[in-house]
Nucleic acid binder design. Sequence first.
DNA 1: GACGATTGCTACGAGTTCGAAGTAATCTGG
DNA 2: CCAGATTACTTCGAACTCGTAGCAATCGTC
Lengths: 218, 218
Amino acid sequence: MSSKQTGSSVARLSESSDRRASDRPRAGSGFQPAPFDVVEASRRVWMERWDPEAASGMAVFTAILRSYQLLIDQVSRVMGNHDLTFARYEVLAWLAMDPESSLTLSWISKTLRIPPATVTNIIDRLEGDGLVRRVPHPSDARTTLAVITARGRKLATTATQDLNATVYGPIGLSEQRRSELVDLLAALRVSGKEFDVARSDEVIEEVGSRQARTSGRT
Amino acid sequence: MSSKQTGSSVARLSESSDRRASDRPRAGSGFQPAPFDVVEASRRVWMERWDPEAASGMAVFTAILRSYQLLIDQVSRVMGNHDLTFARYEVLAWLAMDPESSLTLSWISKTLRIPPATVTNIIDRLEGDGLVRRVPHPSDARTTLAVITARGRKLATTATQDLNATVYGPIGLSEQRRSELVDLLAALRVSGKEFDVARSDEVIEEVGSRQARTSGRT
DNA sequence: GACGATTGCTACGAGTTCGAAGTAATCTGG
DNA sequence: CCAGATTACTTCGAACTCGTAGCAATCGTC
């Protein structure tokens, strides 16, 4: 595998990479392309040594992993400009979406799949920055509500616009292919029970329409 | 666009009977399905508040994120059974694949996209467990080679078989759809310059064709 | 109603990640 | 042969993640 040794095999036919970054609202600065397609390379090795089913599954996982790395790097960079981590942004964004401007910590934990201890930590940080407040739940003394502040809402809006413009919009692929990709991943997630398929549509309707959360009950 | 039909907003608790402890002892134990499809739910909100391009891009990112979470959870759990983290396994697996059984730390960093400081940490840990050894590079005193030990190779094999059998094989989707998914993600990665497209094939050939590496040249 | 089980959250601590700075070796262009 | 730039790796420190234990409130059942 060549690149291991300092002297790369083929000379630098690359004339390209003279990045004159200046005006493009680029979202990635420290990101360097890997020397080759790790998914394809490992898939070939897997095909030699293991069975085809394992190889294709490995390729799926690796492709998702590398895509995730590519995107989370861009997203994190943008969030850094707003003094946020992605985790803190995600919570803030869901709070901003909520009709009541508030969510219980346990709802955040379950829905965004963040361990309870981590949610505590995230809310601590957001509260310290004056972006949310903790409010006792009106009818359940065990429960704490996170309420977004005006400052938090403003930041959520700004950060979202930034993300939309620099990452989500220019993410690549046509609308058609984006849709196909999301569908395939949905099938994968259904197969892995990533969410409650039976009740999902119904719950989404509720979220979109009204509370159904503060009042609890399902 | 995934599915979703109009669902009645009110939903009664219905027969919650199917809840019970019938958790399949699959690869995920602590993993609980989210209450709804977060991708679809957030996509709808984005469509209302922002433009369609941002919404579809957000859906792509979120779908990848949730899929990643689903799979990394399973993978991490399996690795835990072998006293490994995924990061340590990944390095070990690439070392096991290498014809020379060795890689430079900088190659690992660039290829697997792990920051240098993290590679140091990972190798420290692997070395402490007797799975790899650090060896000075024969011709470049700046460079350190990580060499996999017999013990490391054995563990890599065992862990890989475990992963193949419990995660990669049963990952879901037909071979056909796995292939489509990998292709779409490859297009996304190309668009985001996740790897060096121009030289990838060539480098992969070299990897596959063995040696000609430690000796440098090619 | 009472009591054990469950749920919601927090405190603590171990482990991991990784930017930034530092050291050493190599390469480059005189 | 020699600066200065570059590359390779490590050290240090700050931040983040998250399992576990613990506490408080509520629920479920008889």
